[in-house]
Design a binder for these strands. Structure first.
Lengths: 208, 208
DNA sequence: AAGATATTTCAGAAATTACTGAAATTACGG
DNA sequence: CCGTAATTTCAGTAATTTCTGAAATATCTT
């Protein structure tokens, strides 16, 4: 392993714990990610200095996250592992799995709490707070899942747009392309117009 | 602490570790979040059954995350802590701090790696992979920060829209509202139109 | 400034998590 | 079906993280 790859691998090991797995798993994935060919368990153990059994457990963990592909080489019965070529594929899988493992159980707990009858003023307040949290998580998770469904090209295009989407939103409100279909959000209403305008649509980013 | 609040607190304790802090910190924050008034350290220690010193360290951690507000009650020298009223404020702070603590160091490491001269074919390949990862993280983080700058009303409106933003994106391409200002993304171009249409813009969600 | 109360620090204990090597299991080739 | 190679399991150990109580420090009151 060259120093360049080594630094990458070590960093991913540290960061791994932030993403729900341990150092070993982080390092294994970093190695697979930069490798230019599939690797077998022994190669991984040698490169990282972990025991063979530790690598076995790490690979199992990565498989449960659907982050590695398992394949065989002709005339070799060992198992070879690789990370997907498409980084966006990896990103999507990570988001999906984290949602499944962390967000869904939380939403479920909150929903359970919200159907209970509060026994006091303070409990009523607590439940109100839980509802706020539930609504925030629910909305942002749905949105994330929705956005993830877009084609990678569309997604990067959307992201490059940044804050300018807000301008698109205003434009949409002014257009009111399907009158009566969607009630305007009381939080941010602009007076209805009958036709699109083009004189003051410049995004603030290109002004200031 | 009522059973309702207790279950919430315990769950947040478990999940806390996924968000970069430990069980104690998770539980403390859960308690502050649902409390209908600011609490002092002793009240927290009593409610959760932690030692006073453990609570002290937990509160310090939460302060370093800018997640709690410290205030005083008139005629009482103890320190009282509370979570912000606005859940979106909390969410934004969490994202900001996580970006600062996890994403920024990773981007920095990747940038360092990308300026090195590769010493072999495999190293060249590894560097290419790191560039892909860098670009993905860089783009999505910038976008996240951009979106976070929006007013809460605009943000929830945008999120409620879900996949329909893609439709807005197509609309924008057709409008080409500021010709020449931003080159179209080659990944997803639609032929330019001179005027917006309203007959087939219905979102798929309201059809099926 | 002394006394009282509140908060922080920190060394070590307790608990948790990660890792290893040996043994068991599985999969393959003849 | 036997022998061999690959993989997995798991009990025990190592390492890390969390938590506590005692001591130190800071802050307020009189």
């Amino acid at each position: 392993m060259t120093p360049l790859v080594q630094r990458f691998v070590l960093h991913c090991g540290e960061m791994g714990s932030r993403w729900g797995f341990n150092r070993t798993v982080g390092q294994i994935y970093a190695l697979l990610f930069v490798a230019d060919r599939p690797l077998n368990a022994e190669e991984i153990a040698d490169a990282l200095g972990f025991s063979r059994s530790n690598v076995s457990m790490g690979l199992k963990e990565l498989q449960s996250w659907r982050l590695v592909r398992l394949q065989h080489q002709p005339g070799d019965r060992r198992e070879y592992f690789s990370a997907p070529d498409d980084v966006w594929r990896i990103f999507r899988t990570l988001v999906e799995e984290r949602t499944r493992r962390e967000v869904d159980p939380t939403l479920s707990m909150l929903r359970d709490a919200l159907v209970e009858t509060p026994q006091s003023d303070s409990e009523r307040h607590a439940q109100g707070r839980m509802r706020e949290m539930h609504d925030l998580i629910d909305l942002s998770t749905r949105w994330m899942q929705d956005v993830q469904k877009l084609e990678t090209g569309t997604l990067t295009q959307l992201m490059s747009l940044g804050t300018q989407v807000a301008k698109l939103l205003e434009l949409k409100d002014r257009l009111r392309w399907r009158p009566g279909e969607r009630a305007a959000d009381p939080a941010d209403v602009t007076p209805p117009r009958s036709a699109p305008r083009s004189d003051d649509d410049a995004p603030e980013a290109s002004r200031g």
